[in-house]
Amino acid sequence: MRRLIKISLQKPELAAALLLLCLIIFFQVMSQGVFLSLANMRGVFGLMPEMALVAIGVTLLMICGEFDLSVGSVFALSPMAMAVLMTMGWGFWPAMLTGLLVCAAIGFINGWLTIKFAIPSFITTLGMLFMARSLTIVISGGFPPRLKADEIPMWLFVEFVGPGNLFRASFLWFVGIAVLVALLLSKTNFGNWVRATGGFLPAANAMGIPSSKVKIACFMICSVLAGLAGTIQVLRLGSPLPSIGEGLELAAVAAAVIGGTSLLGGIGSITGGIIGAILIRVIDNGMVLSQVNSNWFKFAIGALTILAVVGNSWLRKRGRAMKVETV
């Protein structure tokens, strides 16, 4: 029993999940039952995949010991590239895949620059944040092209599916990718290398792990997921605005941190990042329903982020100090 408590104390995503549960109950009561209604859940589930996909990539990268501030801009650039290519007569699939390739290239550049010149990824990706955003606006030519819905398999991305039309197709993408990345991190040798690279780089290098390649791969996965998320949002909205995704990079970091990912690398889980993203969505939606002045939203997220870091380090210490049989 004590061992079980010890293990759970060291799993910060459990604390976040518990908090999520409390908040759901709280908002359900505060909104007089509207929060968990089918109509509202459809809204929550419809928007959630977009941010959660970004959070998955950012979490993976943070566990690897790096940062990506450019995800918000990449989120806008990828669908913009797709839309522009489509107005030039490209088909949906080649245009969309090219958009994602652009993201992969940006991820590669982020990683390569960071490693080659041994600079903090904070700086590299801050630069990329501005450059990718600027590129988005430049290629949009000032006014966003409209998407021709009849050329796009909307059912595959954003149409409602499932019982009571509860989910959009994007939710299935999200679930599939979440499971895939979570398995990649926890059950494969690549995941082992990611955790070792972020956990203690000298050890990873001494044991012969190709840590630079591992990092670059994580940068690329992070970027591509951000691009896919942006594409899904644009398909939902019907038009690629050059301003979408602004501030998303920080929200994604907040989601990862709320879910128990350490800024120093090596610690965290994909589940945690997803729970963090859901928490943020739930707070946003719940506050609106509870008719709280929505300007308090950012305050709540900020407070929660700080609380999560302080709380997690406390929990971890307690968990560690807790004596079970000696190892």
């Binding site: 082992n192 070792a196 203690f200 000298p202 050890a203 990873a204 044991m207 792990i209 090596g266 610690i267």
Partner: peptide, 22 residues
């Protein structure tokens, strides 16, 4: 066996044993 430990503190013994040679 390095002077400055070549183990990752946040990983289990079993995971550390096989880093890079899983």
């Amino acid at each position: 066996i390095y002077q400055y430990n070549s183990m990752v503190p946040n990983m289990s013994i079993a995971r550390n044993m096989f880093i890079g040679r899983e």
